[in-house]
């Protein structure tokens, strides 16, 4: 079994949207039986904080980083949630194309 994945949730202030998105991501992972550690940070900390994570889910623009960045906005608007959930699962299971 693979080690627990590390996911970084990024938003403007690391308070509101990132918390809401983090809860949704947590539910998603539980549903798929994926073990992961979820952290949150502000946009300004994203570059540094991205160094040891597998995936970023962001509600703001994130500077160029070496890990996949997926938009968390669908969790806020309710539009495209299915697609973004699939992207997250695929990314964590190593099926990223890029």
């Amino acid at each position: 079994m693979a080690n627990a994945k590390r996911i970084l949730i990024v938003c403007g202030t690391a308070i509101a949207t990132s918390t809401v998105v983090a809860m949704k991501v947590e539910e998603l992972l539980k549903k798929h039986g994926i073990r992961a550690e979820i952290r949150r940070c502000m946009t300004s900390e994203a570059l540094t904080a991205s160094k040891d994570v597998d995936l970023i889910v962001a509600t703001t623009q994130v500077p160029a980083v070496d890990v996949p960045v997926i938009s968390g906005i669908p969790f806020i608007t309710g539009i495209g949630t299915d697609r973004v959930e699939k992207e997250i699962i695929d990314a964590l299971q190593g099926k990223v194309k890029s």
């Binding site: 308070i15 509101a16 949207t17 918390t19 809401v20 806020i76 608007t77 309710g78």
Partner: peptide
């Protein structure tokens, strides 16, 4: 406060959806 921000963002999101 941050807890209130989170709670109300969620409430608004539910309304929007």
């Amino acid at each position: 406060n941050p807890d209130q921000q989170v709670e109300w963002l969620q409430r608004l999101v539910l309304l929007f959806q």
